[in-house]
Amino acid sequence: EFSMMFKHFDKDKSGRLNHQEFKSCLRSLGYDLPMVEEGEPDPEFEAILDTVDPNRDGHVSLQEYMAFMISRE
């Protein structure tokens, strides 16, 4: 189920989600993330990124995504 969600939000089929795609994916899974303006701080989402994209390369791989989802179950 999680990998299907990942593929759905991987719009460019790159095998990874940019942070915006990842945020959309989390919202569709029921995460209550506040709407913030582009460039505004988003501490809740930043905290999630610290876990799922610790190297802050700007992308979430399928492996990082799956590890995050399994840790939340």
Rank of each mutant, 00 (worst) to 15 (best):
E1G: 05
E1M: 09
F2A: 11
M4T: 15
M5H: 03
M5I: 06
F6V: 03
H8N: 14
F9C: 04
F9S: 11
D10H: 04
D10R: 05
D10C: 04
D10V: 15
K11L: 03
D12R: 10
D12P: 03
D12W: 03
D12N: 15
K13N: 09
K13A: 09
K13P: 02
K13Q: 15
K13G: 11
S14F: 03
S14T: 07
S14Y: 09
G15V: 06
G15W: 02
G15D: 08
G15S: 07
R16I: 00
R16M: 10
L17Q: 04
L17C: 03
N18E: 03
N18W: 04
N18S: 13
N18I: 03
N18Y: 08
H19L: 05
H19P: 03
H19Q: 02
E21A: 06
E21S: 07
F22S: 07
F22V: 04
F22Q: 03
F22Y: 05
K23G: 04
K23V: 03
K23T: 00
C25Y: 08
C25L: 12
L26F: 02
L26D: 01
L26G: 00
L26S: 00
R27C: 09
R27N: 15
R27S: 09
R27K: 12
R27I: 14
R27W: 08
S28Q: 12
S28V: 08
S28Y: 10
S28G: 11
S28R: 13
S28I: 06
L29P: 00
L29H: 05
L29F: 09
L29G: 05
L29E: 04
G30Q: 06
G30P: 02
G30W: 02
G30S: 05
G30V: 00
G30E: 05
Y31G: 03
Y31H: 13
D32Q: 13
D32I: 13
D32C: 11
D32G: 10
D32H: 13
D32L: 13
L33H: 05
L33Q: 04
L33Y: 07
L33N: 05
L33R: 03
P34C: 10
P34G: 09
P34F: 07
P34Y: 03
P34E: 11
P34H: 08
P34N: 10
P34K: 13
M35L: 14
M35I: 14
M35Y: 15
M35A: 14
V36H: 10
V36A: 11
V36M: 11
V36R: 12
E37W: 06
E37V: 11
E37H: 10
E38D: 14
E38L: 11
E38H: 14
E38T: 10
E38Y: 08
G39F: 07
G39E: 09
G39S: 07
G39C: 07
G39N: 13
G39K: 07
E40N: 12
E40W: 07
P41Y: 11
P41S: 14
P41I: 13
P41D: 10
P41V: 12
D42Y: 01
D42C: 11
D42F: 04
D42P: 01
D42I: 05
P43T: 11
P43F: 09
P43C: 10
P43Q: 10
P43E: 10
P43K: 12
P43L: 10
P43R: 09
P43H: 06
E44L: 10
E44T: 11
E44G: 10
E44S: 12
F45I: 02
F45S: 02
F45W: 12
F45T: 03
F45H: 00
F45C: 02
F45N: 01
E46D: 14
E46R: 04
E46S: 08
E46H: 07
E46V: 03
E46N: 09
E46Y: 03
A47E: 14
A47M: 13
A47Q: 15
I48Y: 05
I48Q: 00
I48V: 09
I48R: 00
I48T: 02
L49G: 00
L49T: 02
L49N: 02
L49K: 01
L49W: 01
D50G: 04
D50C: 03
D50K: 07
D50L: 02
D50A: 06
D50E: 09
D50W: 01
D50I: 01
T51P: 00
V52I: 06
V52K: 00
V52T: 05
V52L: 06
V52N: 01
V52S: 01
D53H: 02
D53P: 00
D53T: 02
D53F: 01
D53Y: 00
P54H: 07
P54L: 05
P54I: 06
P54D: 03
P54Q: 07
N55L: 12
N55K: 11
N55D: 11
N55A: 13
N55C: 12
N55R: 13
N55T: 13
R56Q: 04
D57Y: 11
D57W: 08
G58D: 02
G58S: 01
G58Q: 02
G58A: 01
H59W: 14
H59K: 10
H59Y: 14
H59A: 10
H59F: 15
H59D: 09
V60C: 02
V60G: 00
V60A: 02
S61P: 10
S61A: 10
S61E: 09
S61L: 08
L62V: 08
L62Y: 15
L62P: 03
L62M: 14
L62C: 07
Q63H: 12
Q63S: 14
Q63V: 07
Q63K: 14
E64W: 01
E64Y: 03
E64T: 13
E64L: 05
E64N: 15
E64H: 08
Y65R: 01
Y65S: 06
Y65V: 07
Y65W: 06
Y65P: 01
M66Q: 09
M66C: 08
M66D: 09
M66I: 09
A67K: 15
A67M: 10
A67C: 08
A67L: 09
A67P: 03
A67R: 14
F68W: 11
F68A: 04
F68Y: 14
F68M: 06
M69P: 02
M69K: 03
M69T: 08
M69V: 14
M69F: 12
M69A: 09
S71T: 07
S71D: 15
R72P: 06
R72H: 11
R72S: 15
E73A: 07
E73Y: 15
E73T: 15
